[in-house]
Design a protein around this nucleic acid. Structure first.
Length: 595
RNA sequence: GGUUCCGUAGCUCAGUUGGAUAGAGCAACAGCCUUCUAAGCUGUGGGUCGCGCGUUCGAAUCGCGCCGGGAUCACCA
């Protein structure tokens, strides 16, 4: 890469000019700001103590020598302490024709032997997916694509929370008030049917608590002693005792949940390589804990419960096995981590889980480390922020959740409405039109969510979020569709640049800028992989599309009379198109050929 | 209260290995379709980067203190 060369040559220049040796890493090299002429900028302030000359003189001396020693440098200018290097048009043309045009430009193949395990989604089977899950799923899927583009093998795993007291709650409500309803008999999606009973349980439960409070119990006592919760606990006991009837209902209802989830996953466009079920993993980890107890890493209390004492590390004590020998969530996660490690020998295990579980993962890593598990260092909690609504946090009990299926449907409908209004669906068949509405609607939703830094909380306003102009998915998709239209015209008119475009034509500023944006794709992919942030790709592709639209607006392509110029612009357009498509692929988004 | 994350334009967000005059989009206003898709482009207005002190040639970015907000501190997951 040219940056490396610039740094090396700068070091050489420093040695030659001032007889000082410094490492390339200590030189500040950045992209030149938009308003200033140049491609790369060296900040010379830190070099003044070496040169012992004024910023201007230092910059000029270095610039002169660089220009002499690097044929890629056309010229340079100095503003204050900034040395702005201008690369030759030929350098950029060479990049365009030789690097950027390669189909896999920006992507790395199979650099790493050991896979990365990426856990995401991890739903509960007692209610349908909501907006928070959407962020999780979109992040997880996109990260997998980004990591693959960086040369990793990725195993996408989903740990389904299919057991526990919350599952028993919906089971109980169904037993009491379900009338043997099924998804078929009600026309409800399976997960929604179950969600209905989970909500029903909570309503009835709340009434019981109120009655008990009226009768003089404290709210806490009420919560503990309400008949419904006692019954639910009884079902959990039966389930753990493998009572056939309980198990049978459990399987039946979970089956409905999976049917529903699969539809949601499918529409959202996410998938998994390996499903783990908590009913199969919740007992794991006990061996690890016993082992830890034996070698003194863990402690046992009088009641026989086993704990990790993390107080010396500034945390608290953490229960790992109850007095009766049963597991808690942490025990399960310890076991599952070990299981996955044994199965895949991964280089890294990434968990896409909300930031409300930061403490849990902090403890998980520390306990594993205490148990002598080297891989604890390679556990990476991708802690993403909450999605908030204008009225605040989503609360399932207060009915303020935004349902995933409803939301996607709403996006679809808005996309249809907008598209029809613009008359862009007129020539499409019904199937094609539906596909387009789906692409655009989902594009809007996915981009809206992925463009925000994963770590940050974000606000989702259902009204304002459904936007198709400006910094949005459809804007980028539109730019792509426009390029495809242009290219098909170009093809029809016989504009094939591949064999005939020379690399010595002078570039206009807009042409140059666009090529420079293409150049950034490679480092964007790398940075997104390093920081585990699809937002970096999203912001890049918006910038690329925005810049292209300006190029497209200002310069004629097919109408350009000079043949080589026309070919050049077709070439830039085509590569911009593929780069948009590849970026969108990294985000898990489709692009339409026309819209 | 302990731990931790966050605070940038009216709104939603970029920008932090310390660098030039802090950027986009939305919203508002004004222009551009007899010319490759106007879901587009151009322009105008809009900022004590929560506040203060410090480190530095240079701070939205680093440190300390305060103010405001979120998360968490379960024998739930």
């Amino acid at each position: 890469m040219i940056e490396t060369t610039i740094l090396e040559k700068t070091c050489e220049a420093l040695q030659q000019l001032y007889n000082q040796i410094i490492s390339p890493a200590s030189i500040g090299l950045e992209k030149t700001k938009k308003e200033i002429t140049g491609d790369f900028t060296i900040v010379v302030f830190p070099l003044l103590k070496i040169s012992r000359k004024s910023p201007e003189v230092t910059a000029t001396e270095i610039g002169g020598l660089l220009q002499q020693n690097m044929p890629e440098i056309e010229t340079f200018n100095v503003i204050k302490g900034f040395l702005n290097l201008v690369l030759t048009d030929q350098f950029w043309m060479k990049f365009l024709l030789e690097s950027a045009s390669a189909p896999d430009f920006g992507f790395t193949k199979n650099l790493h032997e050991r896979p990365v395990i990426l856990e995401y989604s991890s739903p509960n089977t007692n209610k349908p997916l909501h907006l928070g899950h959407i962020r999780n799923n979109l992040l997880g899927f996109s990260l997998a694509e980004i990591l693959k583009a960086n040369g990793h093998q990725v195993v996408k795993v989903n740990l389904i929370n299919d057991r526990g007291i919350h599952i028993c709650k919906s089971m109980l409500a169904y037993m009491k008030w379900g009338n043997n309803e099924t998804p078929e008999s009600t026309g409800l999606k399976g997960d929604h049917l179950i969600g209905k009973y989970y909500v029903l349980f909570n309503e009835k439960y709340k009434v019981e608590i109120e009655q008990l409070v009226q009768a003089g119990l404290s709210p806490e006592e009420g919560e503990r002693k309400a008949p419904l919760i006692l019954e639910a606990q009884e079902i959990l006991r039966k389930w753990e005792a493998k009572d056939p009837e309980t198990i049978s209902l459990w399987k039946r209802m979970n089956g409905w949940a999976y049917q529903g989830f699969n539809l949601t996953y499918q529409r959202l466009g996410v998938d998994f390589d390996h499903l783990y079920y908590e009913s199969e993993t919740y007992q794991l980890g006990k061996d690890l804990v016993m082992e830890g107890l034996a070698n003194g890493a863990l402690v046992q209390k009088e009641d026989a419960s086993i704990w990790a004492d993390l107080r010396e590390e500034g945390l608290d004590e953490k229960l790992l096995l109850r007095a009766d020998g049963t597991s808690v969530y942490m025990t399960q996660d310890l076991g599952t981590a070990q299981l996955r490690y044994d199965e895949y020998q991964p280089s890294t295990m990434i968990y896409v889980v909300g930031n409300e579980q930061n403490y849990h993962f902090d403890v998980l890593k520390r306990v594993l480390s205490r148990l002598g598990k080297e891989y604890s260092k390679h556990i990476n909690h991708l802690s993403y922020g909450m999605v908030e609504l204008p009225q605040g946090k989503m609360k399932s009990r207060e009915g303020t959740v935004v349902d995933a299926d409803d939301l996607m449907e709403e996006m679809f409908c808005t996309a249809e409405e907008m598209t029809r209004e613009l008359g862009k669906a007129d020539e499409l068949s019904a199937t094609e039109a539906d596909k387009l509405f789906n692409t655009i609607g989902l594009g809007a939703l996915k981009y809206f969510i992925l463009k925000v830094d994963p770590k940050k909380n974000m606000l989702f306003d259902p009204k304002e979020s459904i936007d198709f102009n400006g910094n949005t998915g459809p804007f980028i998709q539109y730019t792509y569709a426009r390029i495809q239209s242009l290219l098909s015209r170009a093809g029809a008119a016989g504009y094939t640049w591949e064999a005939t475009l020379r690399n010595d034509i002078p570039l206009l500023p807009l042409e140059r800028e666009t090529i420079r944006r293409l150049y950034q794709f490679r480092e964007t992919v790398a940075q997104a992989g390093q920081e585990l942030s699809p937002a970096i790709v999203a912001n890049y592709v918006f910038d690329l599309a925005k810049g292209f639209n300006q190029f497209y607006q200002e310069l004629p392509v097919l109408k350009e009379e000079e043949r080589q110029k026309a070919l050049l612009r077709v070439c830039i357009s085509k590569i911009t198109g593929t780069t948009i498509r590849k970026s969108m692929q990294l985000l898990g988004m489709d692009v339409p050929e026309r819209m």
